[in-house]
């Protein structure tokens, strides 16, 4: 049990009540946000897995071809060929917003395979390398979008999680405890003052009664006594 360090007064009680209301509202909202983020991540995860599997296949194929091409042709020869290769890849990026997170979307227009070097000094491995790497690149581009989204969503989820926890475990209990404490303190104060009031009333009543005792009852009650004496 922990409570905030405030004086138990009526005005503090009102302020805290409002704070508790806001905290509870925020908690509900954040929890919804967290759920949305988790759902979005799970949806992405499926696609990531799919693309990663595809990438692994294409990568293995492309890298194997390249290694072979390197072995047959040598690095410098390949570099000379590669120097003349040009593809017109076009990439457009934009962002969409999910649960307050800016998520990138990448649109890629991939250049299509075409022969860009002489046939005389190259072998089929070079062609194959080009085809394989174009495939690989296409997948890698798709993965870039997914990967970036996952990173951003995961970070946001972490943040949200922390806020939800802070509200749930610390702020809301603190407010509740403090409110209970204030309510108790106010009640006992009320009881105190009620008691004091009663005492005062009694005293006042006594003070009121006494003169009337003197005036009315003493003669009536006192006389027979005096008489018996």
């Amino acid at each position: 049990m922990s409570r905030l360090n405030v004086a138990p007064t009526k005005s503090n009680q009102l302020i805290l009540k409002r704070s508790l209301q806001i905290a509870t509202g925020g908690f509900t909202l954040l929890e919804q946000k967290r759920e949305i983020l988790v759902m979005e991540l799970m949806r992405l995860l499926d696609r990531v897995k799919q693309v990663q599997a595809e990438l692994a296949v294409r990568r293995q194929k492309a890298y194997a071809t390249l290694r072979q091409a390197l072995a047959y042709n040598g690095y410098h020869h390949l570099r000379n060929i590669a120097g003349g290769i040009h593809y017109d890849h076009q990439i457009k990026t934009s962002t969409r917003i999910t649960a307050g997170v800016r998520i990138p979307t990448i649109t890629i227009r991939q250049g299509q395979f075409q022969s860009q070097f002489g046939f005389a000094s190259t072998d089929s491995l070079v062609d194959q390398t080009m085809v394989d790497f174009l495939d690989l690149l296409e997948t890698a581009g798709r993965l870039a979008e997914l990967e970036s989204s996952v990173w951003l969503l995961a970070r946001e989820l972490k943040k949200t999680q922390r806020r939800v926890n802070a509200l749930e475990q610390i702020f809301i209990p603190n407010y509740k405890d403090t409110l209970r404490y204030i309510a108790e303190a106010l009640e006992s104060k009320e009881l105190d003052s009620f008691f004091t009031m009663k005492m005062v009333k009694k005293k006042l009543a006594k003070a009121d009664e006494e003169p009337s005792d003197d005036a009315v009852e003493t003669p009536g009650a006192g006389l027979p006594q005096a008489g018996t004496l």
Binding site: I85, Y87, G111, M130
Partner: peptide, 17 residues
Amino acid sequence: YHIIGDQDTVLGYRFAG
């Protein structure tokens, strides 16, 4: 697209422009 890496890998991707 741009790649940063060792020279062999960079060469490979250069084949894809």
